[in-house]
Design a binder for these strands. Structure first.
Lengths: 145, 145
DNA sequence: ATTATAATTGACAGATTTAGTCGGGTATGA
DNA sequence: TCATACCCGACTAAATCTGTCAATTATAAT
């Protein structure tokens, strides 16, 4: 059971975007420098995020990305489902992908239940929550050093 | 976010073991045939399960594996943590594994929170619960066909 | 003791995923 | 028109996962 670094990167990038932006577009070059994530890799992530309706792009000089809607309306499950294919895929172990209901279905109820749990938890965390965490942490770091 | 098939296999195998056993040891050969999981792969899983105190092994003819304790006292989080290393590992992206608290910590609270959710959900499901599901399903299948 | 059974161990191969690169585009605003 | 910034697709090296194979060791029944 693990969360892909892709999803972790996407979340970090969005927090960074929200922290940096004051309404103006933020270039992924900036985010790349702040978060120390490869520029090209970020581009790939933001293509998905844009197609998923999480961010909007602004082209041309001074362009970049902006959140497509309020940070409070962006939940983590949306973000993760956008950059990954599925939040909680199950391997049914059949060549054709269908479920043969012999043995594995016995335990599928657990995995489905778990998937629901994960989904609902991630749905309860908004980008705004994380950004506030980030702001608080930033303030602490500044105060300490 | 995905559950490894290793974990899924382990859970299925234990349900199968509990369904088949009437107190006597069950060989993984049997389980392998029932669940159609490679014998040798099962061996690997059961080594971990034995070391983790989930099952006990009985050597020699008529030997096999038995549950180390009551099915009601075996929860899914214990099983999964036994066959995998960690239930919810976080990549801190540092070579030495330490957390440098620059950028990624901003979002770590989410992952930790998620990990707790997953853990507590899996802790609430016992092997006995799943075995009962299995029994019910078996009865239905027999009735239908 | 012999033999059959079963667990133990380690090496290994194939498939899949991941993280990241590269080289070209194309649209936009100053 | 020109620099900026996004867009696209192919490609790869490394890591991880899944599953197999072979050989060995331990146990109990006969």
């Amino acid at each position: 059971m693990r969360m892909s670094t892709k999803a972790q990167y996407a979340v970090r990038a969005l927090v960074s975007l929200n922290l940096t932006s004051d309404g103006r577009p933020v270039s992924i070059k900036e985010i790349s420098q702040i978060e120390k994530i490869s520029l090209h890799y970020l581009e790939q992530l933001f293509v998905k995020l844009r197609r998923g309706g999480i961010v909007n792009s602004v082209r041309g000089p001074g362009g970049g990305y902006v959140l497509a809607r309020s940070a409070a309306d962006i939940s983590m499950d949306q973000v993760i489902e956008t950059v990954e294919e599925a939040l909680m895929p199950l391997s049914c172990m059949d060549a054709d992908g269908s479920c043969n209901c012999e043995a594995e279905c016995t335990t599928q109820s657990v995995w489905h239940g778990l998937g629901m749990q994960i989904r609902s938890f991630l749905a309860s965390v908004s980008l705004e929550d994380l950004t506030n965490d980030g702001r608080r942490q930033l303030a602490c770091r500044v105060a300490n050093i």
